[in-house]
Design a protein around this nucleic acid. Structure first.
Lengths: 344, 344
DNA sequence: GTGAAAGCGCTAACAT
DNA sequence: ATGTTAGCGCTTTCAC
């Protein structure tokens, strides 16, 4: 078994000093084209990979980002996974690896990873309106980027979908189709109770857009269990006047809802238009492909990493002008499919 | 901002030498109860966390496991996430962190992480029958555990659900209920083509159990798109004699299948019994809760990590007897819900 | 049961 | 544009 290759081996093989190899590797000072090439050749030939621990120790940067995943029930696992994938891919493009933490470890976990220099910064998913970790994140000696929008984002860097605009987009689409009466089927009550910001923001957007467009809107939190949706649908459609447009912001509801509508003999979109707020693939593969606003998990992940990398750089050199903004909200994109149609 | 606490600070505070603190920390030599206590108190008081890079450099162990996630379409994202969570939780219990890699990085990524000593070992998900990475994994200077069962597991450590037994369990359940004619709705054709072992293994199990119990079984790969299921269902139920029991091993099919059955006026379980191979929560929340065999993602993840930690230990001390087995197959567990009933 | 001291492999001054 | 060298904070012989 060949012994491990180190930087001195590369240096000797290329006929230069170790520091030159180091500088060639991380470009912190100019290297002549000729030597750089010899060094690169040696690196490839010997199969050299710098020892991560030694690098972290000497350089005070681990080149690792920590990703804090939610673990509580009720989170949308496919979205979480796509997000994580995007974080990893983007981090790699910037020469960083990703350490996976669960929300379970909580504040101690953050502190442990920060203090042990295992990671240079944090991407924190599933941030609650009044998240317990916020004070720590503000105080930590390592930068972080949050996914989600807490009540007070001051001093933090947050990225999220603009859920309010998403709610507005749904209603505006329905308004354009001539609908006058819409209902929002929202997240389960516990999601609102938990203080997750996005549920509320969608509801606000729906209400605001309805107001602006002269529509009537009602908001209905709805549990995810199979029984809840049919009951709610019957109640909604039994009202007089009944809504002719539905905005659905609860993935787990989509299936039961479709069943319930079919059972009631309600045709989509002829009798009822439905706009969903859900991942694209789910909207596409529904029996009636759904007009939807998607949660752009991949873009969110990429953006979060890029902001974090930016903050890492800003720590070293005195900030070159642009500090990371406190809040970045990505604009929603509505895709029209087959579940919405003009009223009547 | 308080300066970073190091081992010498703890040593001074506790009135001992740095080496004693180190030994107290990782128990590699006996420490008197008294000093150990003083050291622990100092550690807590000062908020000491050993520098991970320094530890890795001096100790030749990073205390990090790399988890290689699949990224291709068609994998079951919720299962992947649950698996990852379980890996992280278990790794933490053993004092390790988890580095997240995507399958995209492929063999180069594995080599990079192994050679840079960023991780001490690998957990590789979504291993194909004839996975390109197998030779590398066998040759790498770091141990690994694979999730999935390649064609030739020799020299590797593999963990998986016993999919064959799962297929058998489904059929045996139907046999006990008096069914004589069953059909397997399998994974999409591309999954079989790709050489994913589990699809084939389920089919084998179904066939074998049918044979043993004197049933007739047929196997039908089925695409995930919404149109495929209804067509297949019509064809199956139009046959004479038609199957009275269905084994469904394709999550994406479950919804469309239910729709199709309802459309055809087939009642479950009165006219047709259905057994699914899918995550429990999906089976529970179906309109008709499904009798199912679940993929025990959490157990698989925990087991994989424990095997890997075992191999890490075995590398240091001369193996204390038990080497990790090549193949560990977890037994399936079938949960009876409302979608199966005696024939007739 | 405890201490002293020599590295681990790299980076970043400080040289030239 | 390149070389020399002093650590980074820990583990681990070797000594007592």
């Amino acid at each position: 078994m060949s012994p491990v290759v180190k930087i001195t081996d590369v240096a000797r093989h290329a006929g230069v000093s170790p520091s030159t190899v180091s500088y060639a590797l991380n470009g912190k000072r100019p290297i002549s084209e000729a030597t750089r090439r010899r060094i690169e050749a040696s690196i490839r030939e010997l199969g050299y990979h710098p020892h991560a621990g030694a690098r972290a120790l000497a350089g005070a940067r681990s080149h690792v980002l920590a990703l804090v995943m939610p673990l509580r029930r009720g989170v949308d696992l496919p979205v979480v996974t796509r997000f994580a994938m995007s974080v990893v891919t983007t981090a790699r493009r910037h020469g960083h690896d990703v350490l996976l933490l669960t929300g379970e470890e909580g504040e101690d976990g953050l502190r442990r990873v920060a203090d042990s220099a295992r990671a240079d910064g944090f991407v924190v998913m599933d941030v609650q309106l009044d998240d317990r970790r916020l004070p720590l994140l503000r105080a930590l000696r390592r930068p972080s980027v949050l996914i989600g929008l807490p009540a007070d984002p001051a001093g933090l860097t947050c990225v999220d979908l603009d859920f309010r605009a998403a709610g507005e987009a749904c209603v505006e689409h329905l308004a354009l189709l001539g609908h006058r009466r819409v209902a929002l089927l929202g997240s389960p009550p516990e999601v609102y109770a938990r203080g997750t910001g996005y549920a509320r923001r969608v509801a606000d957007g729906v209400t605001a857009a309805a107001g602006r467009n002269g529509l009537t809107a009602s908001v209905h939190p709805c549990a995810s269990d199979p029984g809840a949706a049919p009951a709610l649908v019957r109640r909604l459609l039994g009202a007089d006047p009944a809504p002719t447009g539905l905005v659905v912001h609860n993935e787990a509801l989509l299936g039961p809802l479709a069943d319930a509508l079919r059972a009631e003999g309600v045709r989509v979109p002829e009798d009822l238009s439905v706009v969903a707020l859900c991942p694209d693939d789910l909207a596409e593969r529904a029996a009636t492909p759904l007009t939807s606003v998607s949660v752009p998990a991949a873009e969110l992940g990429a953006r979060a990493v890029e902001l974090l990398i930016g903050k890492l750089g800003a720590e070293t050199g005195p900030a070159p002008g642009l500090a990371a903004p406190d809040v970045t909200l990505l604009p929603p994109r509505l895709t029209v499919r087959s579940s919405t149609a003009p009223r009547g």
